[in-house]
Design a protein around this nucleic acid. Sequence first.
DNA 1: CTGAACATGTAAAAGGTTACATGATTTT
DNA 2: AAAATCATGTAACCTTTTACATGTTCAG
Lengths: 183, 183
Amino acid sequence: MPDDLTPTARTILGFLALHPRSGYEIREAAKRSVSFFWGLSDGQLYPQLKVLAAAGLIEAAGASEGPRAKQVWQLTESGRAAFLQWLREPSAPLQTRDENLVKILFAAQLDPAEALRLVAERRASFQWFLDHLDTIVPRSTWTEAERSSSGPTPDLIRDYGLGFARSALAWCDSVEATLRSKS
Amino acid sequence: MPDDLTPTARTILGFLALHPRSGYEIREAAKRSVSFFWGLSDGQLYPQLKVLAAAGLIEAAGASEGPRAKQVWQLTESGRAAFLQWLREPSAPLQTRDENLVKILFAAQLDPAEALRLVAERRASFQWFLDHLDTIVPRSTWTEAERSSSGPTPDLIRDYGLGFARSALAWCDSVEATLRSKS
DNA sequence: CTGAACATGTAAAAGGTTACATGATTTT
DNA sequence: AAAATCATGTAACCTTTTACATGTTCAG
């Protein structure tokens, strides 16, 4: 079980652990689920699929015909083992790059009015996120039978995004109140 | 006002906009404030200071003696202009890489017991964060007079971290409940 | 005088994004 | 027949991290 895989390769392994898919399907699934806490770009996805295949962790399921035909990938046995081992390894610490927040913290000390504008920008971006949650992470509307087979995961993602956005918006409220009381 | 600066260079500009400091002081300030939503490593900091100096946006304040003496930097006029312009440009979208969360979402569908372990890992990391918030972002204990000159910023950072960690812990609670009810 | 904290820097590699390029299939 | 979407891929670039390297100052 190679431990020289990139974090992104491991994530791809995770998508294939649920069921076999093509690169494009992984891309779409990533867009609709993990996109807001784990980015996955084309320039990573397709090369990493080849890396995983070369390492014997995934294999083509069925023959692909034509030069650009859809190619479905599935985990090999050692691929599944690598996936399970990944789950047991300590996770990389959470990383965030939040430029808007950095700006707010500098602006608040120099120019409260500018800071208020930046808080408005922040509020808008989280509000947009809430308004489009159904697009980003479709609400699961399955029956109980379907749900038990698919697991609670889609709703967990939604809830996480929801909680995060709400807490960010609440923070915007309190910052606005603080800045306004100073001016 | 060059728009080819890296995001990190702009952040450095922000630190110097508050007051002149040395590279080491920027590093320490970043560690104690923005570290959890904006990483800043040595390998970036010192080279970027030189880039900013070469671009005429910062300059040495006073002479530095000796080969490894402390060097204090301050904004030039055009540096301050570049900083203010940065504040007005649209911010890069929030980016996050949350490996633990990715694992949980895959594991929940395959192995609820493993997922529970991962939620425990998540809980521990956010609990650690809360327990060490005073180290990461020192609580401001200034008088009102001091506070008004320094602005409300340090407390805003604290509050943001606090809200984020609390909402993450609440999510852990609800995921544990969901997963336990399934098994 | 020895170790910890202060202080600055470099080189190489990893990881990721963007833009570009191509072609198939489906819809209008 | 054109446009949108499906589908895969490459090359260049950018940013950031990691590991290394060096010297200073202060406290015990």
